[in-house]
Design a protein around this nucleic acid. Structure first.
Lengths: 194, 194
DNA sequence: CGCGGGTTTGATGATGCTCAAGCCCGGTGG
DNA sequence: CCACCGGGCTTGAGCATCATCAAACCCGCG
């Protein structure tokens, strides 16, 4: 179970991970299973953990007064589910995070993760690269939302994250793109015809 | 001139900045002035510098085939103008960055900045916090673009970045929000009436 | 067989875009 | 001092895109 995590860390870093460092890491991460629709985080809570997904898929979303879900992130294997803002600023989250599929995750408390990063050079290298990737990904999505139409954003997602389109039902993808299910259905039907 | 930069770094870090560290920093940052509309980066170039804005304002945007500008970022005093993705991945940028106002900036090469971060603990602390802020800001904007209408996004910006609204003309703000100038004009006129 | 979750299709309407014209205001030059 | 110009803002008419509401369909599963 922890192998996946260690392999993941190694893939990010040129620094070696030593045996006792691996032990230390294992001590602070605890395996947790989520059933479908089980919450990892609910609106109003302060998020204090990050979840590394070993197997499964989760989603992060808001619920409007009218009860509409707006999905702002999707997570699958080797991703981290967490509300960054809430964790870092210790403020109540405006999001829900739940499991879309049955999910095995390794949870780590923020304070423990900080400790590990300070103590293990490989993890410092990892977190810096991860943060960079987050920024690049986020910038791309912002840029897409400003420049592209609904249709173009769908095809952009097909290029940048085909794994999402295979894995999640269409109405989830639609919400993630900020359009509604019927519109996405029509966009797709326009192109299936040829 | 360098005072602003040093003060800025200090505001981010609990680690002290020593005299010889300050000397080192000054050696790698060079003062550059930009006239209005002068480019810091053009589409197709690889971005190798970051610009700390001491005084002035810059913008980052794409130009579509039809010649429309889509502004994806605005920078003012104490911000960093740079194409993160191009810098980190060494890929040609899809963006232009130019000065909107006359601007004094301190430029640093990516490799020099890396060197400084490795050498000066206060700067490591700074860059980590900065990256975190970038992620939080970007997430907020993504979330806004999915959840909110054009009108709501404008009022959201009024809350989160009132300094932009005062500082930039309306058509720039409209582009930054991903709506067009006429629409923003109408949104505002609806509310001035009371 | 019936149910639940997901997708599709159609009719209608709101939101925001396009194109076109006019206005406002500060700066420049005759 | 006035005329003109450019940049920015506003307003209107018509249109495209996307959302909403409603209904039907599809399919895997108990």
């Amino acid at each position: 179970m922890y192998d996946a995590l260690i392999r993941y860390f190694r893939s990010y870093t040129s620094n070696a991970l030593l045996g006792d460092e691996i032990d230390l890491i294992q001590r602070f991460f605890s395996l947790t299973k989520f059933k479908k629709r089980e919450f990892f985080l609910q609106e109003g809570e302060v998020c204090t953990y990050s979840a590394f997904i070993v197997k499964g898929a989760m989603r992060q979303y808001t619920v409007s007064e009218k009860g509409e879900e707006h999905i702002i992130k999707l997570f699958i294997e080797n991703w981290w589910a967490s509300d960054y803002e809430s964790v870092l600023k210790k403020t109540p989250s405006i999001y829900f995070i739940d499991a879309w599929e049955e999910t095995d995750a390794l949870l780590v408390a923020k304070t423990d993760l900080m400790y590990l990063i300070n103590r293990i050079p490989a993890l410092l290298e990892w977190i810096r690269k991860l943060d960079n990737n987050f920024v690049i990904d986020a910038d791309r999505r912002i840029s897409a939302s400003i420049r592209l139409s609904a249709e173009e954003r769908y095809f952009d997602l097909e290029k940048t994250h085909p794994e999402f389109i295979q894995r999640f039902p269409q109405h989830i993808i639609a919400s993630y793109l900020g359009i509604n299910r019927e519109t996405l259905s029509r966009i797709r039907s326009r192109y299936v015809k040829r």
